[in-house]
Amino acid sequence: MKNCSACHEPVDVSDRFCETCGFLLIKDSSAMATFQALTEPIFPNCQKCDSINLEADGFCNQCGFRNPIHRDRFEQILQPGFAALSDRGIRHSQNEDCFAIAQLADGRSIIVVCDGVSSSMNPGMASQSASQSACESVQESLKANLDPEAALVQGIHQAQLAVAKLASISKGEPPSTTIVAAIISDCHSNLSNSDPSNSRISSVQVTIAWLGDSRAYWLGSTPETSCQLTQDHSWCEDVVAAGELSQEQAERSPQAHAITRWLGVDAEDVVPSLVTIDLAGPGRLVLCSDGLWNYASGVPEFYQALHHPPGTEAKVIVRQGVEFALRCGGQDNITIALLELQSKGPETS
């Protein structure tokens, strides 16, 4: 018998989802090691009153204070060039963001970032369930030879089911979350037909799917070769795209940042936007929640905020990125996942 890492109710080892809260139960031991303990307190004693009588979710049974839990700030490093970090920020009492990252044996990588909607019930559980369900589903789909777009569509569908399941145990506004998910596949462009100089450039194929305003950016070696890969599903973005208002006018509206698509039973439109691009390295693929990009929305600013010399480890960059957002005020939860894409020319032949 083990316990669900989200709601702590006992679960059957053979279950895929927690019967109580619908939380995806990770079987892969390394991922489990990362996520099982997420909701547990970091320190054995209360940081306010020093009592060792803490609840499993960090509340002190003596003074009542909620102690830091791993979920407040958690990091995963898969490779020197592949890491993610999520932080509760300064203004929020809980971290309602989550991420899941994975690397398949064939070298393909998967990144999922979710940002639970604060006004909904259990947003933290929603983002955690969604990111883990999506990531696990995408891995299975890719192993079953689905193409990346189909794998992402399937993954987001699974995430939607997981979030919808949470609604049955939550009263109030049903749990909801944004999601941005990417599959990165190496695809050496050895087809150097006309231009011989191309033969040394390899590119990677990145497929991205999203709902809401969590973003993906590509950071090349200069701001000019960098770009934003996603377009928010937000009120602001929608009215500008429809030509109703200018970017400036729209930004001024109080509902500018209201999202228009999300995952959850109350979502009207759960069809993700999809994009597939071939990107030429070297460069860095970044997926993040609005807790970061709110402070560096434009590509040049974003590039500036996360720029580091070649060879800098991914964990250093994501940590510095979180630091940057905290210095700017940390108004929201901050999540950054980063994958470094090397310029791997074909072996000298």
């Binding site: 609840e55 509340f59 002190c60 009542g64 204070f65 909620r66 203004r91 009492s93 809980q94």
Partner: peptide, 12 residues
């Protein structure tokens, strides 16, 4: 309850 700092959460 005893007042907390901004960002603190307490089981009251």
């Amino acid at each position: 309850v005893n007042a907390g700092n901004v960002g603190d959460e307490m089981l009251a």
